[in-house]
């Protein structure tokens, strides 16, 4: 659990509304409340993980307006008026996103702890650069750490998904 960071009075609640996985979300947050805690503890979306807690490992990666951020080091009120995507919102109508499918098919995860962040970061990469070179992929994904796979299968999965996405399916 995050420690309360500030002596700001509890009375200063900030009402925010934002799009969460495609749906309107309205919630009151305290100024010092972290996005990761709001998403995990108050909204029950536990795909994003608190791992290093210092925005180095990427296990807490969420997409805000399509861009990757560290939810562990983002104040919740910062997402007001924006769109937030968690791993839970990636599949549509029960159909897995090509990245999710590729990670399954190519063994892109073992324990799965880094995987939600890994997949969301990969989505941001491919949305920006649909045909990345391996060097570009590695540079973008550099901030997402995996202790299990040795990264080879992750790279394969992302490249495979990229190919599928380029083919338009």
């Amino acid at each position: 659990m995050a420690k309360p960071m500030s002596r700001v009075s509890e009375a200063q609640l900030i009402p925010i509304s934002f799009t969460l996985n495609g749906r309107l979300q309205e919630i009151d947050v305290q100024p010092h409340e972290l996005l990761l805690d709001v998403v995990r503890e108050r909204l029950g979306l536990t795909g994003a993980k608190r791992s290093c807690d210092v925005q180095v490992c990427g296990a807490c990666t969420l997409l805000v307006d399509g861009r990757p951020i560290s939810a562990c080091t983002t104040l919740a009120f910062e997402v007001r008026g924006r769109s937030v995507l968690t791993i839970e919102g990636l599949a549509e109508n029960g159909k897995l996103h090509p990245l999710q499918q590729a990670f399954i098919e190519h063994g892109g995860f073992q324990c799965g702890f880094c995987t939600p962040g890994m997949i969301l970061a990969a989505k941001a990469l491919l949305d920006e650069n649909p045909d990345p070179s391996e060097a570009e992929l590695k540079h973008f994904m550099h901030g997402n750490i995996c202790r299990c796979t040795g990264y080879k299968k992750i790279i394969e999965s992302i490249m495979a998904a990229a190919k599928t996405m380029r083919a338009g399916s």
Partner: peptide, 15 residues
């Protein structure tokens, strides 16, 4: 800033 605040190394009443 938020890293330092989370670590408890600094404490501010207002941001």
């Amino acid at each position: 800033l938020l890293l330092a605040m989370k670590e408890g190394l600094v404490d501010y009443e207002r941001l």
